[in-house]
Write a protein that binds this DNA or RNA. Structure first.
Lengths: 221, 221
DNA sequence: GGCGAATTTGACCGGAACGTCAAAAGACGA
DNA sequence: TCGTCTTTTGACGTTCCGGTCAAATTCGCC
């Protein structure tokens, strides 16, 4: 950033120092996040993480202020996935119901994918007061958006009369709990789970009475 | 137990020593469990718990072997609630669908009630290896029973064709995640949540096409 | 080969919290 | 009132772990 690097010798096949720094930091975050998800924040010592990375604990502090910052960054990245899914659903769905199903499916695919393996959706309590406020605020925003999708769906007739708040809690719980049992190398691929969960959600909230697409009111008009 | 107490003077209005012991131990478990749920196992020091109870940490060790035992006992009690709900559903439900709905509703009512406020369904990872095995085995048994209810429901026609394993994961996630947001003094009473969640589950898995009770086949016979 | 900056290390500090123990305090019957 | 058993205490030992720092090592470059 502040260091002037004169030119792109070797066509940049060799990474710049800044790039290496970023890469190493990312690896640290990923590995620590994995450990956090697997054993919990407080049960994961930075000595452990360092050993996994083949360095010393002290080296980690060159890339990160403290343990808490690692946890915070992991949370931020996890939330990024949520917002990505939200954008995707807004762009590709029409009715509230469609948007919600796309959101659900996309979100599950993301967190079960390569990037999401270090998403620490649990461990919220381990955040210190300041960081917890930030994460909570952002999560509330996500929740509100999610809830409005439900309200919109009820308004446009694609979703039956349900309580938006409880419905979102219901489904977010089902998703967040996945960190407890989902294993990337397990028997169930993320896509299949995504499909199944989205289907369950669909039937739970859809205003359609049959399993068929919800086209009854307009179909005969 | 081993001490001979001669008679029931004062009609036992004053509790025996054994009773007091049991009562105090229960209070310890309850208060510790509350703290565990609220702030997490590792963030709860026994000094804190002791202070809440108005005693010293050392006193706790008169009632309990160590911190781990407290966590284990809390898990056992939480699982007791699950089995209570399971029995209830088996006795009062006919079809697989009915049983599952009763189970879901009862279970939520129990864990949101007085007794369940110290149910630490999270914090599974904090158990040590030995205890974790015990709890996991018992939980697996519960899961298998739950899954068979789904299978039975599919067999008897009350539930549509869903994957029992994923469906149970789905719903257990929604329930277990409640420990994250449910507060006994919050705006939503446990019964209302129980009703709503059971309704969402019903629509998610029911083979009935309308919202009406699933009595179509026999109604006209 | 050698210089300076970037990176890593090993040793160490301090605090937090579990668990222990001998001694004090309390309860209860004789 | 006294003696014994139960219960509680305060002080302490110990371990673990987050975080620091000066020194050593490595790396890129002239």
């Amino acid at each position: 950033m502040q260091r002037g690097r004169h030119s792109a010798a070797w066509k940049n096949v060799v990474l710049s120092r800044d790039q290496q720094f970023a890469l190493k930091r990312a690896a640290l975050l990923r590995e620590a996040g994995r450990a956090f998800s697997a054993q919990g924040y407080h049960d994961t010592s930075l000595d452990d993480v360092a050993k996994t990375l083949g360095v010393t604990k002290a080296a980690l502090y060159y890339y990160v202020k403290n343990k808490q910052e690692i946890l915070f960054e992991c949370h931020m990245q996890a939330q990024d996935l949520g917002e990505t899914a939200l954008q995707y659903s807004e762009q590709n769905g029409r009715t509230g119901r469609e948007k919600i199903l796309l959101l659900a499916q996309k979100y599950i695919e993301l967190i079960t994918g390569e990037m999401g393996s270090f998403a620490v959706l649990g461990e919220f309590d381990a955040l210190d007061a300041e960081n917890r406020t930030i994460i909570a605020r952002r999560r509330d925003k996500f929740d509100r958006h999610f809830r409005r999708l439900v309200s919109d769906g009820i308004a446009d007739g694609s979703i039956r009369a349900v309580d938006p708040k409880l419905t979102v809690f219901f489904f977010m719980g089902a998703i967040n709990w996945m960190t407890r049992w989902f294993r990337p190398d397990g028997p169930l691929p993320g896509e299949e789970i995504a499909r199944h969960f989205a289907d369950l959600l669909d039937k739970a909230i859809s205003s359609a009475q049959a399993a068929k697409p919800a086209v009854r009111t307009r179909a005969r008009a």
